[in-house]
Write a protein that binds this DNA or RNA. Structure first.
Length: 852
RNA sequence: GCGAAAGUGGCGGAAUUGGCAGACGCGCCAGACUUAGGAUCUGGUACCGAAAGGUGUGGGGGUUCGAGUCCCCCCUUUCGCACCA
C-alpha cells in the first residue's frame, strides 16, 4: 500500500486479479444460497453513458453485498445487439451492421471492465449471434405450434420515417417511441404473439410481486392490460337479420340508452346500409373518420370534437323493447370492447356530449342514493326520484329509476342481475374485456432475428424445422435507407425450398422485434453455451427467478410486460416453474446535467451537449469514487443531478480513509490477540465500538432496503468518528488497537459494495490474504449488545417546545425519568408559576411537560 | 381533461414511520499550514435577534400533550393516460 491513494494503480491491480482468479464466476455446484442480481442489458451503441454507470453501480453494490454475506451470486451481462441504430450506421457510413455492433461491444466491454463491475464474463451473450437468436426462432416455432404465434393482415402502426411497423407499446401516444414521428396506420400482413391469451394472468400475477415492484410500474402495467368488467348486450336490428353487440360496464343504465353507436370500422356497417339511400353518405363519413384517425398527430392533446352520423337504421333495446337509432361516430373505437356502444347520455360524459351536439334525448335512469332514517347501508329510499341537474352526465352509481321492474335497485345489484338476465335470455351476459392487444413482432428490417417461416405456393406458410435452425441472417446486405427491408434483396437468403414438399419457396423476410431478444435473455445467462436447448430447465431453476432486477422505468410497460408474458409461455412449455420471472424490481432515476447556457436539468445526451464521459471520470477520479458518488448523490429511484464537485467529495473521502488505513496498517498487521469480550478500553474506545456496531446495523438494513445513499452517508459518519478517536498507532494501548482494527476492517468490508477496488486494497493492507470474496461471509454481523448506548440524551419539552435535555441511563424507569426531567433547572424556569397538568414520558425518547 | 406521486436550508438529500427538523455530502464563510492555493487540515453555516428568546418542512384549516409525518381545502411541480364504453 502506497502512502498516497492512486486509484488507477489499485484499480488495474484488482481488476487483473479478479479476472485471473475468476472471482466473480458463479458456479452451479456451489452449495450456498443463490442470489441473482441483474441489470437490464444494454444496447451496444458504442459508448457507456452515465445512466449505464448508475445502473451497474447499483447492481454491483448488491452483488458485492450478497457475496460478502455468503451468497452464491450470479451477476451476468450481455448485449441487446439487434436493432435500428446498426442499420442506420450501415446506411450512413457504409459499414455492415455486424461489424459495427461487434466493434461497439468490444469498446463498451472495456469500459465496463475499467469500471470494475463484477460480472461473470464467461456468461456474456449477444442477441445478434446465431447461437442466441437460434433460440428466439425456436421459441417462435414452439409458439407457432401452440397457436401462440400467428399471422394476420391488420392495420398496424407504421413509422413513415423509419419505414417500419411499431407495436402498440412502441407507438404509445400516436408517436414513434424512438424518433417521435407521428405514426400512421397501414394494412400489412404480419406476425403476432398472443399476449391477449395471458391478459388475465398479467393482471392477477401482479399479486405475487406487488410488494417488491414499484407501485408506479404495476399501475402502468394494470392500465396497459386494461382489464374491465362489464357485460355484452346484443341489440337486434329492425328489418335485418343482424345483431349489434355492445360492451358496457354499466348495464344498469340500459334503460337510459337512446342510441347505438358504431365505430367507423365496424364490419356490420356496410351490411346494415345495403339498399339504403343514406349508404353513400354514411360510408363516406366513415372513411373520413378513419382517415382522420390515421393522421392523428402527436399534438393530440385536445380531445377531438365528436362527430357522428345517423345511419337511419333502428335497433331494439332487448330490455325495454324500445327502438333507438343506430349512429356511426368517431368517438367509438373498433379495437376496444365490441366496437359499438349503447349511448346513455344521462350517465356517460362522452355520450352526453354527443347527445347534446346531435340533440339526442337524455333520459335519467340512475338517481343518487338517498338514505332513509335508519342510517343502515341497505336503508335506501326505494325508487328515489331525486332528479339531477342535467348540465353534465351523472356517472356515479346509485339507485335505478325509470327502469321498469328494475327501478329501486342499487346499481351494484342491478349490474349483476341484469347481466344474468341477459345471459338467461341469450342476448348477452357478463364479460371482461382487456385493452391489451396481441404483440406484433414483425419488423421490415434487416438487423434482427429472421422469423423462421418459408412461403410455399403449394403448402402456404411452413415453419422451418427445428433441425434447420438457426435461419442465418446473411453477413452482408445492401443498405440504401430507402424502400423495403434490405433482407428482401439478398436472394441467397430469400430463395429456398419448401421444408414440406421440397419445391422452390421463399423465406419470410420480416425479422423479429428486438423485444423478443430481451424477453428471455436472463434465462440464457444461466446456461449460456447450451446448444441443444435455450437453457437446461434444471440449471435455470437453480438460479431463477431473478432476485433483484435493476433498470430504467422507461421499460415499465414494454419490456417488463413482454418478459412476464414470455415467462408464462415458458412455464406452459414446461421450461420453468413458478409464475413470475422477477422477484424484486428497482427502477432507477435518470442521470441529468445542466444544459449549458440554461438553468435546465435534462437527461445527458449528445444532442444537448450535456453528456459526461464515464471514461474521463474514471481517469480523473477513479472508478471507485465515480461509483460511490453516483450511489451517494441521490436515492437510486430519484433523478440524479450530475455534480463534478460531488465526485470530488467522494475522492476526498476515499483519500482520507486510505490515509487512516495507511497510518495504522503496520500496527494492525499483527494477529489479533484479544477477544471482544476481553476488551476493557477507554471511554473513547467504547464509543467507537458502539459506533462500529451501530453502523453495521444501519448499513446492513439500508442496503437490504436499497437505500444506498444513506448507507454511504452512514459510512462517512462512521469514519468521522474514527478520525475523532485519534489514538496513536504505536502508543495506543492494545485495547484501543483492537477497537481500531475492528472499526477499520468493518469499514473496508462495508466499503466494498460502493468502491470495491479500494476496499480490497485496504482489506489486504490490514493483513488479509486472498481477497474479500474468497473470505467466506466476511460481512460484519450486527450485534445490538455492542451497539447499545451507555447513556441517552432525552429531550425535555414544555408544552411541546424543546427546553432542555437530560442525560440518563438507557434502562432508567419512567418515574425516575419523569422526576429527573421535572427537576431540570431549565425546565423549572418554564414551569415555575404554572400548574403542571400532565407529564408525557416516552421511554428512551422524550419527556413532554404540559402546563397551564 | 382524468389519474398518480411529490413539495424540507443556497443545492442533492436525512429524519428509527406521530416524538430533538436539517444526518451525510456539495457549496459558502472564517482560521491554520503555505511563496502560492482551485491542495490539505480545523471550526462555522435554516431564518430573525446583541442576547434571552422567537420563527420555520408550498399556503390555509383541523386532530393530538406533541405533526415534515395523520385528516380536509387550496396552490405548484413532475410523471403516466388520452374519447378504453
Amino acid at each position: 500500500m502506497d502512502e498516497k491513494y492512486f486509484p488507477e494503480q489499485i484499480e488495474a491491480k484488482w481488476q487483473q486479479r479478479w479476472a485471473e482468479a475468476g472471482t466473480f464466476e458463479a458456479r452451479e455446484d456451489d452449495p450456498r444460497p443463490k442470489f441473482y442480481a441483474l441489470e437490464m442489458l444494454p444496447y451496444p451503441s458504442g459508448f457507456l453513458h452515465m445512466g449505464h454507470v448508475r445502473n451497474y453501480s447499483i447492481g454491483d453494490a448488491l452483488a458485492w453485498y450478497k457475496r460478502l454475506r455468503g451468497f452464491n451470486v450470479l451477476h451476468p451481462i450481455g448485449w441487446d445487439s439487434f436493432g435500428q441504430p446498426a442499420e442506420q450506421a450501415a446506411i450512413k457510413r457504409g459499414i455492415q451492421p455486424r461489424e459495427w455492433t461487434e466493434e461497439n461491444i468490444l469498446h463498451m466491454k472495456g469500459q465496463m471492465q475499467r469500471l470494475g463491475v463484477s460480472y461473470d464474463w464467461r456468461r456474456e451473450i449477444a442477441a445478434h449471434r446465431p447461437e442466441y437468436y437460434k433460440w428466439d426462432q425456436w421459441f417462435f416455432l414452439k409458439m407457432f405450434e401452440r397457436d401462440l404465434a400467428y399471422k394476420r393482415k391488420s392495420a398496424v402502426n407504421w413509422c413513415p420515417k423509419e419505414e417500419t411497423v411499431l407495436s402498440n407499446e412502441q407507438s404509445s401516444g400516436g408517436i414513434c417511441w424512438r424518433c417521435g414521428t407521428p405514426v400512421v396506420k397501414r394494412e400489412i400482413e404480419q406476425w403476432f404473439l398472443r399476449t391477449t391469451k395471458y391478459a388475465e394472468e398479467l393482471v392477477t400475477g401482479i399479486k405475487e410481486i406487488e410488494r417488491d415492484w414499484p407501485e408506479k410500474v404495476l399501475k402502468r402495467q394494470r392500465d396497459w392490460v386494461g382489464r374491465s368488467e362489464g357485460a355484452y348486450v346484443d341489440f337486434a336490428v329492425r328489418d335485418h337479420d343482424e345483431k349489434v353487440r355492445v360492451f358496457t360496464t354499466r348495464i344498469d343504465t340500459i334503460y337510459g340508452a337512446t342510441a347505438i353507436v358504431l365505430a367507423a370500422e365496424h364490419p356490420l356497417l356496410p351490411k346494415l346500409l345495403e339498399g339504403s339511400s343514406l349508404k353513400d353518405d354514411v360510408m363516406a363519413f366513415a372513411e373520413k373518420v378513419k382517415g382522420a384517425r390515421a393522421i392523428k398527430a402527436q399534438d393530440a392533446t385536445e380531445e377531438e370534437e365528436k362527430l357522428g352520423m345517423n345511419t337511419g337504421q333502428l335497433s331494439v333495446n332487448p330490455f325495454s323493447g324500445e327502438l333507438m337509432p343506430i349512429w356511426v361516430a368517431n368517438y367509438v373505437l373498433m379495437d376496444y370492447g365490441a366496437g359499438a356502444v349503447m349511448s346513455v347520455p344521462a350517465h356517460d360524459e362522452r355520450d352526453f356530449d354527443f347527445a347534446r351536439k346531435y340533440t339526442l334525448p337524455v333520459r335519467q335512469v340512475i338517481a343518487p342514493i338517498v338514505h332513509g332514517q335508519r342510517g343502515e347501508p341497505d336503508d335506501i329510499v326505494p325508487g328515489s326520484d331525486q332528479s339531477i341537474d342535467m348540465k353534465t352526465a351523472f356517472t356515479e352509481y346509485g339507485v335505478l329509476v325509470n327502469s321498469a321492474e328494475w327501478s329501486g335497485k342499487l346499481s351494484s345489484d342491478a349490474m349483476r342481475e341484469m347481466a344474468d338476465y341477459a345471459e338467461a335470455k341469450k342476448f348477452g351476459g357478463g364479460a371482461v374485456t382487456y385493452r391489451i392487444r396481441d404483440w406484433g413482432i414483425s419488423r421490415q428490417r434487416f438487423w434482427g432475428a429472421p422469423i423462421p417461416i418459408v412461403y410455399c405456393e403449394h403448402c402456404g406458410a411452413v415453419p422451418v424445422p427445428e433441425r434447420d435452425l438457426p435461419v442465418m441472417l446473411p453477413d452482408k446486405a445492401e443498405f440504401t435507407g430507402t424502400g423495403e427491408s434490405p433482407l428482401k434483396s439478398v436472394s441467397e437468403f430469400v430463395n429456398t425450398t419448401c421444408p414440406k414438399c421440397g419445391r422452390a419457396a421463399t423465406r419470410e423476410t420480416d425479422t423479429m422485434d428486438t423485444f423478443v431478444d430481451s424477453s428471455w435473455y436472463f434465462f440464457r445467462y444461466t446456461d449460456p453455451h447450451n446448444d441443444a436447448a435455450p437453457f437446461d430447465p434444471a440449471i435455470a431453476a437453480q438460479w431463477t427467478p431473478v432476485d433483484q432486477y435493476i433498470g430504467g422505468d422507461s421499460h415499465a410497460v414494454m419490456h417488463l410486460i413482454y418478459t412476464r408474458f414470455w415467462y408464462k409461455v415458458m412455464r406452459d412449455l414446461g421450461l420453468v416453474k413458478g409464475n413470475e420471472p422477477v422477484k424484486r424490481l428497482l427502477t432507477q432515476g435518470m442521470v441529468t446535467n445542466r444544459v449549458e447556457g440554461t438553468s435546465d436539468w435534462k437527461a445527458m445526451s449528445k444532442s444537448l451537449g450535456n453528456g459526461v464521459d464515464p471514461d474521463e471520470m474514471i481517469k480523473a477520479y477513479g472508478a471507485d469514487a465515480t461509483r460511490m458518488f453516483v450511489l451517494f448523490a441521490a436515492p437510486p429511484e430519484n433523478e440524479l443531478r450530475w455534480s463534478e464537485s460531488g465526485i470530488e467529495g467522494a475522492v476526498r473521502f476515499l483519500r482520507r480513509v486510505w490515509g487512516m488505513v495507511y497510518r495504522w496498517q503496520e500496527s494492525l498487521s499483527f494477529p489479533v490477540r484479544l477477544e471482544p469480550s476481553d476488551v476493557e478500553c477507554s471511554p473513547e474506545g467504547r464509543a467507537l465500538r458502539r459506533k462500529t456496531y451501530q453502523t453495521i446495523a444501519k448499513v446492513t438494513s439500508d442496503i437490504d432496503g436499497l437505500h444506498l445513499n444513506t448507507s454511504v452517508a452512514a459510512l462517512m459518519e462512521f469514519f468521522n468518528q474514527v478520525v475523532d478517536f485519534n489514538a496513536h498507532p504505536v502508543m495506543a494501548p492494545p485495547e484501543d488497537v483492537f477497537v481500531m482494527r475492528e472499526a477499520l476492517e468493518a469499514l473496508a468490508v462495508m466499503l466494498a459494495p460502493f468502491s470495491p477496488h479500494v476496499a480490497e486494497e485496504m482489506w489486504e493492507s490490514l493483513g488479509h490474504k486472498g481477497g474479500l470474496v474468497q473470505t467466506a461471509a466476511v460481512w460484519p454481523v450486527a450485534d445490538p449488545e455492542l451497539a447499545r448506548k451507555e447513556e441517552l440524551e432525552i429531550p425535555v419539552q414544555v408544552n411541546g417546545k424543546l427546553r432542555s435535555r437530560v442525560v440518563v441511563a438507557p434502562d432508567i424507569n419512567e418515574a425516575d425519568l419523569r422526576a429527573l426531567a421535572l427537576a431540570d433547572s431549565k425546565v423549572q424556569g418554564f414551569i415555575d408559576g404554572h400548574e403542571v397538568v400532565k407529564v408525557i414520558v416516552v421511554p428512551q425518547r422524550l419527556v413532554n411537560v404540559v402546563v397551564k
